[in-house]
Design a protein around this nucleic acid. Structure first.
Lengths: 109, 109
DNA sequence: TGAACATATGAGCAATCGTTCATATGTTAA
DNA sequence: TTAACATATGAACGATTGCTCATATGTTCA
């Protein structure tokens, strides 16, 4: 007969966050899980940038960048402000750098 | 004529990590970007678990869990040891908790 | 108002991803 | 050695993703 781990499961289950939170965590990291979006976030590390500057920097179309900025914004990772025709994006808060920094540490250890 | 940001780009480019590192970062976060894998990592937060216990816990097939453990192991996020027929998986290091913790902070702020 | 610029958005498509199913590998005990 | 258990793996399929292309929206200036 297969071995039993009901006790263990009861204990571990009790410590698991809600399904909703677990889903949100996955969704958040999914946003970090794309090189283009990582590059955009790094581009904004020091200062805000307009969409066309990011597109120039990454040698990608304005449309592609715009789509990805929308994803980043929906996850509250970037924020924007308008100045005339131009829209400047910036990192939304310090968590962005913290998360990327922790990832960096894991890779370069 | 479109506006020019050559100077800005030169500055930002200089501060960007290598393409290889950026790719690695995206690949790493991609592994965190799935609810099943997040659940597995949370299950291993306190202690190691065998594959079938994880499968029971998450109510998923042993095969699905095994496939995901392989992904987690390839990213050095979990490690394993064999004890007879059973293989126990554990978190590979403290970075896993740090990264998830930072994500948690971002969501619950 | 109309032209030029900056950005956003929707549809479509190729590529990637996560699961299932069937089966293989590895270990133990009779 | 054979049966039972634990885990791993490859193929296949549906779902999701990131890009492109065309076009829409919003802003400024002449």
């Amino acid at each position: 007969m297969p071995h039993n781990h009901d006790e263990l499961l009861k204990h571990v289950s009790a410590d698991m966050p809600s399904d909703e939170l677990l889903q949100d965590l996955g969704d958040l990291f999914k946003v970090f899980g794309d090189t283009t979006r990582i590059k955009i976030m790094y581009a904004l590390y020091e200062d805000e940038m307009c969409v066309c500057a990011i597109a120039d920097l990454l040698k990608m179309t304005q449309s592609a960048i715009s789509h990805q900025l929308k994803v980043l914004k929906a996850a509250n990772l970037v924020a924007s402000r308008r100045e005339g025709k131009t829209i400047y994006y910036r990192l939304a808060d310090e968590h962005v750098k913290s998360i990327i920094g922790q990832g960096y540490d894991h890779i370069t250890e």
